[in-house]
Design a protein around this nucleic acid. Structure first.
Length: 113
RNA sequence: UGGGGUAAGUGGGCGAUCGCCUCGUUAUUAAACGGGGAGGAAAGUCCGGACUUCAUAAAAAACGAUAGUGGGUAAUGCCCACCGUCCGCUUCGGCGGAUAGGGAAAGUGCCACAGAGACAAUACUAAUUCUGGGAUAUUUAACAGAAUAAAAGGUGAAAAGAAACCGGAUGUCCUUAACGGGGCUACCGGUUUGAGCCUCCGGUGACGGAGAAACCCUGGCAAACCCUAUCGGAAGCAAGAGCAAACUUUAGUCGCGCCGUCCGGCCCUUUGGCGAGGUGUCGCGGCUAAAAGACAAGUAGCUCGCUCGAGCCCGUCAGCAAUGACGAGCCUAGAUAAAUGAUCGCUAGAACAGAAUCCGGCUUACGGCUGCCCCAAUAA
């Protein structure tokens, strides 16, 4: 889990990211990236009941994604708000598959230093 | 040992690496060390409360809920015990199971199929009487109509509705030449059971037991409307309380930008991308108009509410039990775009499933193991 500093906390932050951010949509994940005025990176994860009605399953993917971002965090540029959107096709994917995909998305959006 | 049921208990373990929330101590910038960190259903949100705000003279109406009795409880539509009814078994002593179980002469409605008629109903067959008729004499038949009559046939789950059984003739039928014999029950007598009234006894009570007297006319469904009795003010922690800072608001129009697994277009070889236009939406800025300018109000900003509670657990006592009383011990998540984890290895392949103000219940989901019950096989 990320520390509180690296989380997006407010509804306004999400609104801002959706309205101003760069976007990229794949089959299982979507990412929106927007500049914030801070020196740190903040993360938000959206996973709706369309993905699964069971909270346990949604929590599982949310935690896996957070873990991936936590590992990559030192390599990423600062001052970004990242919103990751999860689609139902993720259900049969394993941890390392999700990891590969997420890293490639970071590459495409040139988020690495 | 195998299979099935039940749901009382339990609700994976160990190790490695890397992390999160919270509390305490030390530091007081970063941090270090130590403690704690989802459930039996956290779920469905179906009942009952605590708590909060608002409303409120009382009552009624309306609406909703409940419906045998007693007890338990903060309370309940929950739980426990008992009563009645129904079903099964029985060694007739009981045992086990089910049970939304007030009112059907307040009214309305419904009662499939069959049947003449499905309820203060019904005359199809058969019966009796009258009229017609036959028929301008007699006998008086078929047939038609009307009335009476609820004993029978037939239909049905049920038919103007106590039931079952026993005995019997003076009724009736059969048999016999007769005496006699035998059968039947719309009639008579008796017994038992059942409902209601009355009395007595037992029980807190639902109700049970006994007795006496007479009469047994007046279907079922209220999980149909309804009636009666009892209970219920409304909304919910985004309740609600406090604190700090900042911001004029609305409408129209123009420009720029952004977004959508949109549409159509272009490029490309993929997790596809780009983006002039259309439509929709949003943000920022400008202009115009109107209103406003302190104040007030608003804004999911922060803190509180927020976890010590009808709490957990052990023992003793009371009680058939639900449960209660007393005493000892314990502190056991508190997040807020939301912590309680991720990956890997071994074990065996591991269920249902994630707190959001807090409790008590109900319902639903659940792999393995243990407990209990049933069945089958084997051994003694």
């Amino acid at each position: 889990m990320l520390k509180k500093d690296n989380r997006m906390l407010k509804n306004k932050d999400f609104d801002r990211a959706f309205k101003l951010g760069q976007s990229f949509y794949g089959k299982i994940l979507g990412l929106k990236s927007a500049d914030n005025d801070l020196l740190k990176t903040r993360l938000g994860i959206l996973i709706s009941t369309k993905v699964s009605k069971k909270a346990v399953i949604r929590n599982h993917f949310r935690r896996q994604i957070r873990e991936i971002v936590r590992k990559e965090l030192p390599l990423l540029k600062n001052g970004k708000d990242l919103v990751i959107i999860v689609f139902p096709q993720i259900l049969d994917k394993k941890f390392d598959e999700i990891e590969k995909i997420l890293v490639s998305i970071f590459n495409r959006l040139k988020l690495y230093k």
